[in-house]
Amino acid sequence: MSTTLSTHVLDATLGGPAVGVTVRLEDSTGAALATHRTDDDGRIGSFVADPLTEGTYRLVFDSGGFFSAQGREHFYPEVVVVFRVDGSGRGYHVPILLSPFAYTTYRGS
């Protein structure tokens, strides 16, 4: 069993996927491990080819770039979600629900 990582970004104000959001995966030191953009369904299915090892990671969502590209006012230039991989080998899905002035996240399945 390998430790995988995926995300899904939904635009709460438009009621659909947030297409083209740049998302960067960082390790606990802030070093970039991978950068991807959400697809037409607002998803990034897999961040890295190799399994993640136990530790703390960050997903940095470029929410400001997403909203600016659409000419929409926004408050958060980026959303940073810090999470822990426990070494169990299970997959991690970290979705966010995004609006120009709020966001929420949870551990998905």
Results as ranks from 00 to 15, higher is better:
A34G: 04
V19K: 10
G16T: 05
F101C: 11
T29A: 09
R37M: 14
P100E: 02
D62F: 08
F61C: 02
V80M: 01
T22I: 11
Y76H: 01
A49Q: 13
T104L: 05
D27L: 02
G42W: 07
T38V: 07
G16A: 10
F47K: 00
D86E: 13
T22M: 14
Q70H: 15
R90Y: 15
V19M: 14
L14I: 12
G45V: 09
H8S: 10
Y92T: 00
V48R: 09
L97T: 13
R58L: 06
G30S: 06
S46M: 15
G15W: 10
F101Y: 08
S2C: 02
I44T: 10
L5Y: 01
R72C: 06
G108L: 12
G42L: 07
V48T: 14
T4E: 14
G65L: 04
H8K: 13
F101E: 07
G91D: 09
L97A: 12
R24P: 04
P77M: 01
L98K: 02
D11P: 10
E73Q: 04
R84A: 05
R84W: 03
P17V: 08
R84M: 04
F75N: 00
G55A: 06
L5E: 00
I44Y: 07
R84T: 03
G108S: 14
D11K: 07
G30N: 05
D62L: 12
R24F: 06
S63L: 09
T56M: 13
F66R: 11
V79H: 01
R58K: 03
R37P: 09
L52V: 02
G65F: 05
V21L: 03
T22L: 12
T105K: 01
E54G: 09
T104K: 10
Y57M: 04
G64K: 02
L14K: 15
T53Y: 04
L10M: 13
V85G: 11
F61Y: 09
S28C: 12
G64S: 02
L14G: 14
Y76W: 05
P95S: 07
T4L: 07
G20P: 12
I44K: 09
H74K: 04
T3R: 11
A102V: 12
S109P: 13
S46L: 13
T35I: 06
L33K: 02
S68Y: 10
S63V: 04
T35V: 05
H74Q: 03
S2I: 04
D86Y: 14
E73Y: 04
Y106V: 08
V21F: 01
